[in-house]
Write a protein that binds this DNA or RNA. Structure first.
Lengths: 137, 137
DNA sequence: TTTCCCACTAAGAATGATTCTCATCAAAGA
DNA sequence: TCTTTGATGAGAATCATTCTTAGTGGGAAA
């Protein structure tokens, strides 16, 4: 993604555009896996030697609050960040600990239909996600 | 559950039966919520003043490995333990941070059927769980 | 332009959950 | 009984994350 595109996303989230936010957002957008704060830090450190790990944590959190990225917790309890905003499920490989995306419109439709019909008592659903654990072959 | 019942479960898991394991398993079995290691420790401490928090962590982990309890990670990255072994989904309340169980045979059947038909390429599924986030009313 | 202000950042200390280390202990088997 | 092995207690160590504090820079207003 180009600088203008990133700037747009950040400012549309109601945030000031800064160099640090630019490189951090860029790292998330380019990552194919689901990076941790540490991953992002390692990724950008060589080109931005003065950046601080604390800033990475704080900025990622700011992005989550602004709704321009998502976060979730992995099996080990570590925060993972994700530039994809649409709902999608995750595959956890027990062998390699990799996390990959799984997206299937039919499944989403199935779940939506199911929970429309079967409301949960005294509970207002915001989002549903599926966690699939297994092994890569 | 009575002592004999707990002893049975622990020894059937291939583990030696000890006093600590007894009280820790009992705490998990009686808990209605999904306790953390710290919760279990607080729960049993008054009757077992010499028990160590490290032992609670280690024992819970031993139980998980032996397959007699389950564990998962909550939104905040903290380990939660669960004496229920059957597959079931969790409801996360964004207001109170409570986690409750959700079990629905129809939903399970639906998912099983779906993934039987729609195998995931190069991935062997062990278990599927659903995370439902929202608010208690 | 100059000043003022405030959000942003860097650096590292502090925290909280979890794991590790190691000495001691207890039970089961030889 | 002696030995061995695994379990336990105590607390140190680790790891991810948050907090604190001081310093910086860019925009708004005069």
């Amino acid at each position: 993604m180009n600088i203008e595109g990133i700037k747009n996303i950040i400012t549309k989230g109601g945030l000031k555009f800064t160099h640090q936010r630019m490189v951090i957002y860029n790292a998330i957008a380019e990552a194919k896996n689901h990076p941790t704060a540490e991953h992002v830090f390692e990724q950008i450190k060589s080109d931005n030697p003065s950046i601080s790990l604390g800033t990475v944590y704080k900025t990622l959190d700011t992005f989550v609050t602004a709704g321009i990225i998502q976060k979730f917790v992995d099996n080990k309890g570590v925060m993972r960040f994700d530039g994809i905003l649409e709902a999608h499920s995750h595959l956890y490989c027990k062998k390699t600990n990799e996390i990959s995306d799984y997206k299937n419109a039919e499944l989403e439709a199935l779940l939506t239909k199911f929970f429309d019909k079967n409301q949960i008592e005294d509970f207002d659903i915001d989002e549903i996600s599926i966690v699939i654990k297994g092994q890569k072959l």
